[in-house]
């Protein structure tokens, strides 16, 4: 893995609360699509993005059943990006801050997502061409 071809993204936004999460996913997706090896460090609320127990629901206000609604789940976005990276034979290392996972009881992440530490974030950044951080309020 070349340092010049690796990008790291760290973010904090939990799912379903703001536009930032979606934008981070769009950036990560673009990086994967462009063929970069990508590290993602999910910190604090962002660890919930890959929580395996997210579930779709129907939406009576929209007048749609569960299938028609096809509600987005960030865990599916993570899975899709992992699958795309694997298909392109590039690396997508998605690490959830372990202590952040524990305090939220969010240990059940989807396959392909791992626990990480702040030391992992520093290592990711040091071994990347660059790092973009997206905090939260």
């Amino acid at each position: 893995m070349s340092k010049d071809k690796t990008l790291t993204f760290a973010f904090m936004e939990p799912p379903f609360e703001s536009a930032r999460g979606t934008t981070v996913f769009r950036i990560v997706s673009e990086a994967v699509r462009s063929g970069f090896d990508v590290n993602v460090f999910a910190y604090e609320g962002a660890v919930m993005m890959s929580f395996a127990r997210q579930q779709q629901h129907a939406n009576a206000v929209h007048g749609r059943d569960i299938v028609e609604e096809n509600h987005p789940l960030p865990k599916d976005w993570v899975a899709a990006l992992l699958a795309e990276a694997a298909a392109k034979n590039i690396k997508l290392d998605w690490a959830n801050c372990g202590l952040c996972v524990d305090e939220r009881g969010a240990g059940e992440a989807i396959p392909g997502v791992r626990r990480g530490t702040p030391a992992d974030l520093w290592k990711m950044a040091a071994e990347s061409a660059n790092t973009l951080v997206v905090g939260t309020h």
Partner: peptide, 9 residues
């Protein structure tokens, strides 16, 4: 996080 990363070098 800053302290933890500092501790990691």
């Amino acid at each position: 996080l800053t302290q933890a990363m500092k501790n990691a070098g």
